[in-house]
Amino acid sequence: MLFVSIVIPVFNDAKRLKLCLNALENQTYPKHLYEVIVVDNGSNKEQNISGLVTQFEQVRITDESSPGSYAARNKGISIAKGEIVAFTDADCIPTINWIENGVKNLLHTPNCGLVAGKIDIFFKDPNHLSVVELYESIMALPQMEFLKKHNYGATANVFTLKSVIDKVGFFDANLKSSGDVEWGQRVAAYGYGQIYAEDTCVAHPARHSFQDLYKKTVRYAGGSYDLQIKRSKSAWERNKKFIISVIQDLIPPLIFTCNVFLDSRLKNFRQKSQVSLVMFFIRYISVWEKMRLKFGGYSTRE
């Protein structure tokens, strides 16, 4: 069995980090074969992240002053002892056999570059979902789709080998979002295999309010915009990609709306209409943020 290093970036989220660390303290994987590295990415002193970490036997802490979860993950990787490196987020709750199954899937798959595990979405009150939670229930973090269609796994739940990181490189620390997209696609470009693992699962809270969803949308739009710039070879190509992305956001997502009204997970016309309206909200906020960045703004972590 190989030693595993689990890297968790955190920014002002001590309450949910404690739940995550509790879950990682009680894994089926042998305790002497894994470590948890919490990377404090500039949390407020009142959060007392270092004090929280001392409560857990398996956990050590470091910090990264450069803002952004990918810069923080890189810091964790740089001090990781493990031959296997796993990533999750401070607001995630891994299942009791998360490490065991992640390692099994990684090692039993020939030439495996990454394992993208399942991400279950949970809610404050499953019997009374907010409009935003309703949207998240069918749209948030479709890990299998990320892998099959786009060759990456969301870093809320990814396992890889340290040797793979040594070959393909670290995350792009300049990206505030979409760094997992860029890195995962780099892994695929190097010829490594990628698999989705249903049995390697973490639970992730749904966004509850429009404020939460707004922050997420702005961050994702910024990451997408920054990644476009990174991948554009000329100003002409960059401007072309920008125009296409804005048009795609502005055109009413009719296909999405049709699919929503056919989705059996939504119980009635009211729910289907609400989810469709949330999609419009997201699209137009995304355009607004891309326009802000185009005219001199900078992407933010939240």
Rank of each mutant, 00 (worst) to 15 (best):
M1Q: 09
L2S: 13
F3I: 03
S5A: 11
P9K: 01
R16C: 06
K18A: 10
C20P: 06
N26W: 04
Q27P: 03
Y29I: 11
Y29K: 08
Y34P: 01
Y34C: 04
V38H: 00
G42F: 04
G42P: 07
I49V: 14
I49W: 02
S50Y: 13
G51Q: 02
L52W: 01
L52A: 02
V53D: 01
I61T: 03
S65K: 14
R73K: 13
N74M: 08
K75Q: 13
K75A: 13
K75D: 01
I79G: 11
A80W: 05
F87V: 06
T88K: 02
A90D: 14
A90K: 00
D91I: 14
I93M: 12
P94E: 03
T95G: 04
T95Y: 13
I96W: 06
I99S: 11
E100P: 06
G102L: 12
G102T: 08
T109G: 11
N111V: 03
L114T: 03
K118W: 05
K118D: 08
I119E: 05
D120L: 11
D120C: 10
I121W: 02
D125E: 14
P126N: 15
P126T: 10
N127M: 15
N127H: 12
H128D: 11
H128Y: 13
V131T: 12
V131P: 00
E133S: 11
E133D: 10
L134V: 04
E136V: 02
S137L: 08
I138P: 02
M139S: 14
M139V: 09
P142D: 08
Q143T: 15
K148L: 15
K148G: 01
K149R: 14
H150Y: 15
A154L: 14
A156V: 14
A156C: 15
N157R: 08
N157Q: 09
V158A: 02
L161Y: 05
I165T: 08
V168Q: 06
N174Y: 07
S178F: 15
G179S: 10
Q185M: 12
R186H: 07
A188P: 00
Y190H: 15
Y192Q: 04
Y192K: 05
G193A: 13
Y196L: 01
A197K: 00
D199W: 00
T200Q: 00
T200C: 15
A206G: 09
S209N: 09
F210Y: 15
Q211M: 08
Q211G: 05
L213K: 05
Y214E: 13
V218M: 06
A221N: 07
G222W: 04
D226F: 05
Q228N: 15
K230I: 13
S232P: 12
S234V: 09
A235G: 01
A235W: 03
E237P: 03
K240D: 04
K241P: 03
K241T: 01
V246Q: 08
Q248G: 14
L250T: 10
I251W: 10
P253W: 03
T257A: 13
T257S: 06
N259Y: 08
V260K: 01
F261I: 13
R265Q: 13
K267D: 05
K267H: 09
N268Q: 06
Q274T: 00
S276L: 01
L277P: 00
F280G: 10
R283Y: 08
S286N: 10
W288T: 01
M291W: 12
M291A: 10
F295N: 04
F295A: 02
G297M: 12
G297W: 11
S299P: 04
S299H: 02
